[in-house]
Write a protein that binds this DNA or RNA. Sequence first.
DNA 1: TCTAAATATTTGTTTTTACAAATAAAAATG
DNA 2: CATTTTTATTTGTAAAAACAAATATTTAGA
Lengths: 216, 216
Amino acid sequence: MTHSEENYIKIIFHLRRTGMEEVSTNAIAEQMDTKPSSVTDMVRKLSEKGLLHYKKYQGVKLTELGKAMALSIIRKHRLWEVFLVEKLNFSWDEVHEVAEQLEHIKSEKLIDKLDWLLDYPKYDPHGDPIPDKNGAFKEREKKLLNEVPINTAGICVGVKDSSATFLKFLDKYNIALGQQIQVLEREEFDGSLVLKIDDREVHISNQIASNLYIKI
Amino acid sequence: MTHSEENYIKIIFHLRRTGMEEVSTNAIAEQMDTKPSSVTDMVRKLSEKGLLHYKKYQGVKLTELGKAMALSIIRKHRLWEVFLVEKLNFSWDEVHEVAEQLEHIKSEKLIDKLDWLLDYPKYDPHGDPIPDKNGAFKEREKKLLNEVPINTAGICVGVKDSSATFLKFLDKYNIALGQQIQVLEREEFDGSLVLKIDDREVHISNQIASNLYIKI
DNA sequence: TCTAAATATTTGTTTTTACAAATAAAAATG
DNA sequence: CATTTTTATTTGTAAAAACAAATATTTAGA
């Protein structure tokens, strides 16, 4: 598997998670920051390799092999993210692009040992679950803050958007995973919320609320 | 810089260290496990990028920029080797091929933090020096065991051949960096040696002796 | 249902790295 | 010093990944 092939597989897996049954070439192109014609070529190759099912004009769907492949890459990506934060003191908005490179390193021993060094973490710095060696993982039951009734309380366990800008915003307002959050008020007009975070009162827009997960 | 370009620069640097003033295309081809015609192409490109001096039929020589590049790659390679041994309990014969991949990861912050995590090591697991951020390093004054007079004593500080087979051989006979070594006898017939290592008496062939460094 | 718009694929190129075969230059040898 | 051998380069191709423009298919609108 080349880096490029791995990136396609990973992105197809993520697109599948976030909606559509069959993934379209254009959707892949957009995520890969490439053109649909390039995607058609690659998708054909991956299908020949048995990593996905592809019929012209019908979109694409990972095979079991393809899914296993994707989970293995995601496992590596997230373990490296934990490593960067826990061992090298990276902040959570800096890890993604480095992990994008590290995820392609080929050594099963390396990743097993890394898992051991980090004490077999279950979640990455953004709260996303880390698949185990066999690809198994449990998604935490969690809710987006904007979908939860008034007075709900819980622990902040993840972000939906893990872009650097959003994460830096959260840092600025001292919002982090593990904090106790309670929804005090919801403004009907714009969907903004008043929260109690640990012991502070914090106002956040609906945009923010719809990207923060809590576990009730 | 692509991975391939980086590998060329690194190998040219090593070839220069180990002999020739100007490095020949064929020598590069052999080390890169590729063909001379491919080397000519690449060398031309690297010369256009200002990383080396190249005149047809005259061989090749790194520019200051090329040397700095090479040292930066070697720094990454050796730091990753230390990481693998110190933090992930790899043995010294397992680190090379993984480090070959890790050395291409692009993140200055990553490598600086790694250096910090490892407490700024000066030598890698085979005793080779690790360049600092500016490319500076000090080669230890060391001698090959086969070139040293009888009764010389010192500390084992490095290996010349760092192939897995040689390193495994040393493991098998409990020879490791840091040990006290004294040359007790040299057999004129075949150049083999009798050593005192810590408190054992060990017989080694000239072949072995010519790949082990001690610091007197 | 027929046509226009949206989506996806084909075709023909480009760039990068590599190779084999043919050729050219340099070095070694008689 | 002419010839052979070694070494290096050129030329013409290949595979991987990508793109633009042309074309085909599907879907949605009228």
